[in-house]
Design a protein around this nucleic acid. Structure first.
Length: 261
DNA sequence: ATGGCGCGGTCACCGCGA
């Protein structure tokens, strides 16, 4: 099974790029974030024609939106209303091969890392706390959590520790919450796990840079987490940075993982 | 150099991303 996670920043605008990506890399389960479209406008039939017969998408106008498109039959779908909000930030499925998949788009958190003056930051932290409680007692095997978690976990997941330490997505409080999610929820950060601990890894580069590759000021915000039992079944993990070079790229690149189940 | 760019939408400016 090959699974992909990608914050596409508009599924309709980037349709063709996504289609050729899924063909080239033989993706079985495609998890997208920031689809930015209501369900009635989701290009469902186009994905069906590519073999993604089973689909679960929850979108809204302009903002957010997540989807799981699968060639492996989906036997169960679930949704949870995080922080009592109807934001389209999570979809979950159980597949016929007994794998459970959660796809998240964690709130970005606004500009200022202060819960009193910036309600978006407060919302982000509360969202993470709810995720921690949701998975706290979950010892399910065969589970995978993917998505744009909007947090770079560690020093080698950002281009500059010094310059980003007070920037939302890399503050200590966010990284502590992500670390708590991993330990309490029995999650393994398999992207980091399959690379050297001190290798710089990024999945996002800002649009606001003349030459993303030259300045290389990236952050690792997109993640694939799995339960312990799946770690030994990993055959391959790739961060496909070449997609940042595409014509009209997303600011995030896809990450793919292959499991021998 | 707290700028810069790109997305969708009650559409030419604004909210949002991070």
């Amino acid at each position: 099974m090959i699974i992909a996670t990608w914050n596409v920043n508009s599924v309709r605008l980037r349709q063709d790029m996504i289609f050729s990506f899924t063909k080239k890399f033989n993706i079985d389960v495609l998890c997208l974030q920031e689809t930015k479209t209501e369900d009635k406008n989701f290009p469902s039939d186009n994905f069906k024609n590519l073999g993604y017969e089973d689909q679960y998408f929850i979108g809204q106008k302009s903002y957010n939106g997540v989807t799981i498109l699968s060639k492996i039959p989906i036997i169960n779908k679930f949704y949870h209303e995080w922080c009592g909000s109807k934001d389209a930030r999570h979809v979950g499925v159980k597949l016929k091969n007994k794998i459970t998949i959660h796809n998240f788009y964690v709130p970005a958190g606004g500009d200022v890392p202060n819960v009193t003056t910036n309600l978006k930051f407060k919302y982000k932290l509360n969202f993470l706390k709810e995720m921690i409680s949701y998975f706290e007692t979950d010892r399910t095997k065969n589970k995978i959590l993917v998505g744009d978690l909007n947090i770079a976990p560690n020093i080698h997941d950002v281009w500059s520790h010094k310059q980003l330490i007070n920037v939302v997505s890399y503050t200590q409080v966010e990284r502590d919450l992500l670390s708590e999610l991993l330990s309490k929820g029995n999650w393994i950060d398999i992207i980091r796990g399959q690379h050297k601990p001190d290798e710089k890894l990024y999945t996002w580069w800002s649009y606001r840079s003349k030459d993303w590759k030259k300045s290389n000021r990236g952050r690792r915000l997109d993640h694939i987490l799995t339960s312990n039992d799946l770690v030994k079944k990993i055959k391959m993990i790739k961060i496909l940075s070449e997609f940042r070079d595409a014509k009209k790229p997303s600011d995030h690149v896809p990450v793919i993982a292959k499991f021998k189940l």
